[in-house]
Simulated scan of single mutants.
Amino acid sequence: MEPQRLTGPEAGVLKYDLLTALSVAGLNGSPTLQTSFMRLMALVTARYNWRADEFCVGQRDMARMWSVNERTVKREIKRLVSAGVLICKRSGVRGRVGAYRLNYGEIARLSEPSWSRVGSDFEQRMRARYRQIETKVIKLETYLRDEERTPSAPLKGSPWGRAMTAVAAEHPNLYEAWFARLTFLTFEGGQLHLKAPSGFIQRYVEMHHMPVLLGAVEKELGPVDRVAFEI
């Protein structure tokens, strides 16, 4: 569900809630997700045109704001667009600066598992605002190569296997679509190493389902400081 454009008497509350949702989703995700959402929040707070519902900022300006090079900016924007957090309104071609808008519905779906961490009042407001949120499961056969379609069975009795069994019981669609294709490698010093069959699956899990993954794994393995993927 898409809310009304964030202008008017209640706009302040809507904007703060949106930024709160982004921040808690990032803090409960991987280091990559934290960095992506921190950059996005800086861009939104400094340069988002709420009336036009877009930001239109040159790559050089974004690079300066984020203290990175322009190649990193291109990669970051592409990652956020691929995840559905940003929607490209106008492509930046032939010297023209691109324009992007926030995808409120996708941000809500992504951050929904973390709302309760903010407080019951915040969770109630967000649920009332985004009543039609449903778990978004992409049919992988639309996107994946043949070698990416065979799920890996969890090792029964192992901590990883127990974690995946719990995910499969609570989120069967998510498990079949995403987690079943991850392979456990090692867990040492708070660092969880997993193997993903493709960069697409890695990025989608990082951007959308890290809170579910960490919640299940930390019950079996203890605190996870970092999740590293191999392809």
Rank of each mutant, 00 (worst) to 15 (best):
A108D: 01
F122R: 00
L110T: 15
R109I: 07
R127T: 13
K89Q: 11
S114R: 06
V93F: 12
Y100N: 04
Y130R: 02
A99N: 05
C88A: 06
R101D: 01
R125K: 14
R109E: 08
V85W: 11
I87P: 02
R129W: 13
G119V: 12
A128L: 05
I107N: 00
V93G: 12
G105N: 15
Q124T: 14
R125Y: 13
R109V: 06
R125I: 15
R94H: 13
S120H: 03
S116M: 03
Y100C: 03
S111N: 10
S111Q: 02
Y100K: 04
G105C: 08
L86P: 13
K89L: 15
I107L: 11
E106P: 04
G98T: 10
I87M: 11
G105Y: 03
R125E: 05
S120V: 08
L110A: 10
G98C: 04
I107M: 13
A108N: 01
R125P: 07
I87W: 03
L102Y: 01
P113T: 03
R101M: 12
V97Y: 05
L102E: 03
R125Q: 12
N103Q: 06
G105D: 13
I107G: 03
S114I: 01
Y130H: 06
S91D: 02
R129C: 04
M126A: 11
R94I: 08
R90S: 13
S116K: 00
A128Y: 05
L110M: 15
K89F: 07
S91Y: 01
G92Y: 08
F122A: 01
G119I: 07
S114V: 08
E112L: 03
V118N: 03
C88R: 08
R96M: 11
